[in-house]
Design a protein around this nucleic acid. Structure first.
Lengths: 211, 211
DNA sequence: ACAAAAGTGTTCTTCATACACCCATGT
DNA sequence: ACATGGGTGTATGAAGAACACTTTTGT
């Protein structure tokens, strides 16, 4: 009987912070060797018969301390198979994304780092983040589960602009993003307007998912 | 110590047959229980420390009898994690694609079935094929490794038309496909023309990858 | 001559990008 | 008043889809 490679699930736990106007990535210091104390993506070994989504949930709640209800959505990204990526021995890493609803976060949270400025991480987690980043940008406005997971059920044009800038690297014209969003199935512009920013400016529209 | 889920690699071994003018999928009857005798995708259990690509190669050579040199390219598709997908117990399946160069196939080959008309397969392999099909169509002309793997270093407009029809479901206008191909980086129309089809018609251009 | 199939040129539509200008808010 | 920032309308260019017409072959 061939001994099989171990499988770990590593999660890119993403949260959009409307105040910081950027996407944040949840990381946590490792409790055990190897890389004890170093920051890492939340990850767990996949249990026998466990589903990937459940393992991701377990990683996010266990390693980041995020409550279960705050996880709004998740999905697959890619699999990393370098045999030397874990010094303990060959371990497959299946990378998933999860979106976190900030409004349901309780008190003491994990470390949230800017997605554009992730500190050095344990294992090959830097590479995982680097390789998966374009896939995340690609999902925006195309994968409604992902986008709604980041923005919540209702959001403003201002937030949509900030989120897009944070994920793709440049800021769209408000007019053009509005037309893009009107073409997204399941998304509609409401008649409401939110409060204007502290600095002033026209109050942005409120958008809502119909599904 | 938690016993980890087993990992298998299942391969969509694809080959473009210019005569049949379709994409063929390599399947093989299973030698052992469960599903002994039933057709299945070539798959192997991932060895400890083995890379996914190597496992895919092992599956294609071992289960399909395709020689190593005939495998022109391969890549990841998705991971399937239903715990009940294998009656022997929970087994993760990582699906990969591999392209087979028909010119290097030796004598007795495996069973090649039309990709549009795959017979019932063992395990959840029907579902794997169904779920992965759109991903394959999506790669055409975008992923040059994939496209070149199917068509070879040189190919004709006629073959490009047939391949596109086979993967996407409808046949593009030759003029439009030509313009699409001219925009593919690393692909160029040569001055040569191939022989016309048996039924006649204008001799198609020959295209070549520059990389 | 005729059928078959690829290639050329043209049109139409859609979508992304860009920008000038207008509107609603805070200071 | 003025700065800030979203919204409206409009223009431009690239890409996809559709089709008339031409070219080159086999029968």
């Amino acid at each position: 009987m061939i001994e099989s490679t171990l499988v770990s699930v590593d999660v890119l736990a993403l949260r959009f912070d409307p105040n910081a106007r950027t996407v944040l990535l949840g990381v946590a210091p490792r409790a055990l060797e190897p890389f004890a104390g170093a920051l890492a993506l939340p990850g767990v070994l996949l249990g026998r018969g466990e589903r990937l989504r459940d393992a991701a949930r377990r990683a996010v709640t266990g390693k980041l301390g995020v409550p279960e209800e705050a996880i709004s959505a998740s999905g697959q990204l890619a699999t990393f198979d370098e045999p030397s990526r874990d010094p303990r021995g060959p371990t497959l890493s299946i990378a998933l994304w999860s979106t976190i609803d900030a409004t349901r976060l309780t008190g003491a949270g994990p470390t949230w780092t800017q997605l554009d400025d992730v500190p050095p991480l344990a294992f090959d987690h830097d590479r995982i983040v680097r390789d998966c980043r374009p896939m995340l940008a690609d999902r925006l406005w195309r994968d409604t589960t992902f986008t709604a997971g980041l923005l919540g059920r209702e959001f403003t044009t201002a937030q949509a602009l900030d989120l897009t800038e944070s994920l793709t690297g440049d800021r769209p014209y408000p007019a053009n993003l509005g037309r893009t969003m009107e073409r997204v199935p399941g998304l509609e512009r409401t008649a409401q307007h939110a409060a204007a920013l502290p600095k002033g400016g026209r109050p942005p529209s409120v958008w809502r998912w119909t599904t």
